[in-house]
Nucleic acid binder design. Structure first.
Lengths: 125, 125
DNA sequence: ATTGGTGCAAATGGTTTGCACATTA
DNA sequence: TAATGTGCAAACCATTTGCACCAAT
């Protein structure tokens, strides 16, 4: 049931967010089990552990195409993007340094469209 | 004295590493003071807080040019690189999503040259 | 009976904080 | 005397783990 909710739920879930969803369905499930389930999914390769430096861990399904993240420092919303040119430049950089890259983490922090104050909008003034 | 050691020391220091260096010089200094000093430097903009998902925080001087990081998952060593083409692609991505970017974090994880087993070296086989 | 998974509460570990104390102006 | 910064130990908090328990083989 936990796994079902996880894959159906939105992306980039906090463990606590998932725990709430799960407990809304069944109050008898403890947080430890949610932690254990997510760790298991990550170990099996079905979930990715994310860390945006917020002090809490997030998880997302790894059954989707690779992507990186845009994190809004205003409302905390996380969105995704994919940019093959950045990917290949990373390969290039790694190779130049003799690195055998296995993965990378790229997050762009800033203010999302809804959080940009009107007076700072492109088409303002 | 803590500040002096911090800026003179190598990059990407763990708080614990810096505490060791400081206490080697003066045993009477507690870890709390080192934590407080680094937080202060970060607040004033002289230090950057880094988080590579290792479970510990690292700090580096922000008085150097912007750069991103290569993290060796074998020996833990962290090195730096700078790739203007990646930077400008990030700007482009942010703009495309209506984001006002303030910063980004890019870390490439993998195996550094010293940790690549010989049989996997490019010029092996 | 044995296995595997669970909830609960306690442990963990990096970081922060309350507080009494010292040092300086 | 007031203000600032310190060490120490306790608090914090997300996460992990020990353990007794339960369900299903």
């Amino acid at each position: 049931m936990i796994i079902g909710i996880f894959f159906r739920a939105g992306r980039h879930l906090t463990v606590d967010e998932l725990t709430r969803k799960v407990r809304a369905r069944n109050r008898d499930i403890g947080a430890a089990t949610v932690y254990r389930t997510l760790k298991l999914l990550a170990r099996l390769g079905y979930a990715k552990e994310l860390d945006f430096g917020e002090g809490v861990r997030r998880y997302e399904s790894s059954l989707t195409a690779h992507h990186d993240h845009l994190v809004c420092t205003g409302c905390g919303k996380v969105s995704e993007f994919e940019e093959p040119r950045i990917e290949s430049l990373q390969e290039e950089v790694a190779k130049k340094h003799g690195f055998l890259p296995t993965m990378h983490r790229l997050a762009i922090y800033g203010t999302c469209p809804e959080c940009v104050p009107p007076e700072l909008r492109e088409n303002a003034e």
